[in-house]
Design a protein around this nucleic acid. Structure first.
Lengths: 167, 167
DNA sequence: CGTGAAAAGTTGGCTTG
DNA sequence: CAAGCCAACTTTTCACG
């Protein structure tokens, strides 16, 4: 699953695209020191390789009535594969569930849920525990979103052949 | 902070754009039953209103070497405003920190961190506790990312004037 | 809201270091 | 093989009815 080999140029391009994918290729090219075509071809390749998964609009949660963020920790006692699969599918179905992880440690699952308000959360919560029976649930509300970015940290992974050359 | 009034049409458009913002306006228009210009004008307005905050490329975490997700819970004992501000700013600075919330309940802060591997997490962790002194920290690793979307649930908030008309 | 045309950007063939 | 040039094509954007 490692990087299929991204060079510094790719990383620069990705950094820009993670910030704003509407910028014209020519402009991006200029910024990274490339003319349009080679820059465009790199972007194509990054898309083919699946490094760029998609391009999406990011909405303001407040303004679309999804401003309340709740983290739900779940412990379960069932561990059969069949149960797991149904559980995963059922939870992932809810559009309110925007993130859903299986965790190590004392909590089995962690979900982040986006809802309009506390009342809506209560409704969601009831739907959830009706649909899937789970041993222990606990909710924690976010009071303030201090940072929330879709931009992943881009560490430049030096190709193996340059391992010993240092930085 | 409420919605500045989105109708069903806006919601349809936003749903599409949250999924894929590269689709031509004409095509989106066709899908929602609108011709190019009015569809375009709606998108413009949604951008002006800040409902659409930005358009970004979503990358594959594995493929850019940021495939390990860790949640860090922090409790603090300091509560002066000055400390808070410095703390927020310092933590938000780290590119590895992709989400950062002030929470209610027994944990004060929750962060989601994206790193290449466990070793890199350790490096990050040390940087973090060096930079900001915090009372209690605990880390939980995500073993599996079952769902992770940037698409918020779009509940159609009916305008006040239609309150009593039902669905 | 629809039409239509100019401006902007994308895409890909062809050439060159 | 990777970069640059250039021209056809697609999409955006906007004035006007």
């Amino acid at each position: 699953m490692a990087v299929h080999m991204l060079d510094e140029m790719d990383v620069k391009i990705l950094a820009i695209l993670q910030q704003d994918c509407t910028r014209p290729v020519a402009e991006i090219g200029k910024e990274v020191g490339l003319s349009t075509t080679p820059c465009w071809r790199r972007i194509q390749k990054l898309e083919e390789l699946g490094v760029i998964k998609r391009r999406v609009a990011v909405l303001d949660p407040q303004k679309v009535n999804a401003g309340v963020t709740v983290f739900i920790s779940i412990k379960t006692d069932k561990h059969s594969l069949a149960w797991l699969e149904r559980f995963h599918a059922a939870v992932a179905e809810f559009p309110e569930v925007v993130e859903f992880y299986r965790m190590s440690g004392d909590v089995d699952y962690l979900l982040r849920v986006a809802v309009p308000d506390i009342a809506a959360y209560d409704v969601f919560y009831k739907k959830l525990i009706t649909e899937v029976e789970i041993a222990k649930v606990s909710s924690a509300f976010a009071m303030e979103e201090i940072k929330h970015t879709t931009a992943l940290p881009l560490t430049f992974a030096r190709p193996a052949s340059e391992k010993r050359r240092g930085s």
